[in-house]
Amino acid sequence: MRDRGVIYTGLLVFLGIITFPMWHDWAAGTTSRGPDPVLPAQEKQCVAPLSTMRTSHMQLLMDWRDGVVRRNVHTYTAFNGRNFNMSLTGTCLTGCHTNKADFCDRCHNYAGVAVYCWDCHVDPKLARRSAK
């Protein structure tokens, strides 16, 4: 009887927590527009079709890593017959996606994905800057 205040407070806290994303996104002005990774200007086709890259690029990079490190395979033949050197830093980040922050990080940050690629691989742009 005397506990109704406590019960209703608890209920309101619960409703507040459940609807928190709504209040947060409303206050932050978030829209469902999504991230906007900057695509390379000179190259139109990635090493695999767009839909594959969107969902499975991590798998591809892991296959590359295992190929290079464990099987000494360095050349990747793409679906359209082109050959690529299997290297994240050497091919992807140097040839096309020269700005990691504008490409990789945009979607990773958006989806809240913390990848450990960069524990070993350096962003070539940052490496060049620190070398100067």
Partner: peptide, 10 residues
């Protein structure tokens, strides 16, 4: 391995 970005947009 679905498209996570599209799911977040939804």
């Amino acid at each position: 391995r679905i498209d996570v970005v599209a799911v977040k947009q939804l």
